[in-house]
């Protein structure tokens, strides 16, 4: 596969949107990979955090929006806490989720009905509310 790069590809509207929504300077990332190295759920991800940022640097938003990764992030902020360049992957993840959820692009989110039916009596309320807000908009 060949990725054709151009100014248009790299600086697409959707990338700008991710940068704006997340409040992160995607160009600041120098790809040290520390976010991926310290992520507690990285094993479950199809694209690791530093690669997500790299894809965004290359203007490749679509594969990222389609990834499992953005739904797996538990917002523990370990990536943001240790990033030497102050880039918060957790915020980028929230922005990517928001783009999907606000457009309802994907069905890959938790089903509110199912969650409330099966979980509410058992899991702490904060977990249910948190999951619904993060994963269901």
């Amino acid at each position: 596969m060949r990725l054709k790069l151009s100014a248009e590809v790299i600086k697409g509207d959707l990338v700008e949107r991710v940068a704006e929504l997340s409040g992160q300077n995607l160009s600041a990332c120098y790809q040290c990979g520390r976010c991926s190295a310290g992520c507690p759920v990285v094993e479950e991800m199809d694209i690791v955090p530093s690669e997500v940022i790299r894809l965004l640097q290359l203007g490749q938003v679509e594969p990222v929006l389609d990834s499992e990764t953005i739904w797996i992030c538990a917002s523990c902020l370990q990536c943001a806490s240790r990033c030497p360049r102050g880039v918060e992957f957790s915020s980028i993840c929230d922005a990517l989720r928001a783009i999907v959820l606000r457009k309802r692009l994907s069905g890959s989110v938790v089903d509110a009905d199912e969650v409330t039916r099966t979980m509410v009596s058992d899991a702490p309320q904060m977990g249910v509310v948190g999951a619904l807000r993060k994963l269901n908009g």
Binding site: V41, E44, I72, A74, G127, A131
Partner: peptide
Amino acid sequence: KTECCGGFQIVREEDTAVACSQT
């Protein structure tokens, strides 16, 4: 002591939360 327990992922993907908590 400062690693994640899996948090709200328990609602979506229990195995993920189990792995985190087990660590």
